[in-house]
Nucleic acid binder design. Structure first.
Lengths: 202, 202
DNA sequence: TGTACATCAGTGAACGCGCGTTCACTGATGTAC
DNA sequence: TGTACATCAGTGAACGCGCGTTCACTGATGTAC
């Protein structure tokens, strides 16, 4: 039952996509290969035709998942200041918090990533760097270093608030964490803007 | 080989302490009961004389671990503004990041906690609330609600920066995340202080 | 273009292993008189 | 205070289960001529 090259590539892509989703939902250790392969419509023995180990799958699936996430951040940044803020507010929306599939890979896997093997750690490092680069808006601050510092600070707040809001089993407190962080991000962005831009402020 | 009540209580306490440490180091799913019991100097069959399940241990160990963490935050707050800032800067120090045992329970378990069972989620919620309460410094802001909002924002930044700094496999970037967040926290605290206090600023 | 054959994607069963949990047993502790 | 007995903390082996990984096999695909 050998498949064509195109089918093989498509299968590999599907495994990566399903794996990223399941890892985000149940964690890395909480997700078995059988579960992933079954969700991809395959028997789980075939896994090793595509990957050498679960570790390799984790590294690749996380990297691909982050690329998508970074892509959407980039798209927002290209649309200007208003879109960036909307993007961050959407990231911290209660709807997104309640959707277990809507998590970003970092907040979904945070503590597990720091214990992952070298390949995954490396992939995670590259992804975080790409994300910081994507969120660095040169026109937003007085210079590039300052813009990058703004990006790092914003990202820390975003990841921390997203993580806390999902830990807390109390809707009111969780909402407060999200809305307070959104408020501060909005204030900071409108305040520290160096060159006034023409996009409509919130 | 029945033990006295005092010895039994001491054993239970020791299991909780060791468990909290191992969970922080290897994660919840990454730590086995046999490993915990062995680190506590016991055979692993005896576990169920003290706890009904691993889930119960997780909830109790996390709660106790957080109580210690909240206690140290409270102690800093009682010492005034300078001690608070020092406490936060220590939390984000590179030494602490590199010490896998020095992590706070939230940043160490973040993503796993949101997938934990009801008991643990409940314990986590109560702990986070206690931590926010502890970090709420009424004299620091213009009113209590504002002080609480400051606490939530600071906590989000702290958790996010700690999480990111441990994911990143690149010392320079990791250090930048920590130091940038420390810088912003210091700026924010000195700026938003409502009543000037007499402690020596940094 | 057609044929013969090597390749290899996918199947399904099996492997060893570590997990959380259970259990029969031991013997010091705590209790009842 | 002393004795008889029930309790139960801790041991060590076993349980079933799901995990990541391996493997013999199938048969369509891709290649060589």
């Amino acid at each position: 039952m050998k498949k064509s090259r195109a089918e093989t590539a498509e299968t590999r892509r599907r495994i990566l996509e399903v794996a990223a989703r399941e890892f985000r939902r149940n964690g890395i250790l909480g997700t078995g290969l059988a579960e992933i392969m079954s969700a991809a419509g395959l028997s789980h023995g075939g896994f090793y035709r595509h990957f050498a180990s679960k570790d390799q799958l984790v590294a690749e699936a996380f990297a691909a998942d982050m690329d998508t996430f970074v892509g959407s951040a980039k798209a927002a940044v290209e649309q200007g200041e208003y879109a960036i803020l909307k993007h961050m507010e959407n990231y911290l929306s209660s709807e997104r918090r309640d959707d277990c599939l809507g998590q970003c890979p970092i907040s979904a896997l945070g503590s597990e990533l720091s214990r992952a093997d070298g390949e995954t750690r490396g992939a995670a490092s590259r992804s975080v760097r790409k994300l910081i680069d994507a969120l660095t808006v040169p026109g937003h601050s007085k210079n590039l270093a300052s813009a990058r510092a703004d990006a790092i600070a914003a990202l820390s707040s975003l990841i921390g608030a997203a993580t806390l809001s999902r830990i807390v089993d109390d809707r009111k407190l969780s909402d407060a964490i999200l809305s307070e962080t959104k408020k501060r991000l909005a204030a900071r962005r409108s305040k520290s803007r160096f060159k006034p831009d023409t996009s409509n402020g919130k």
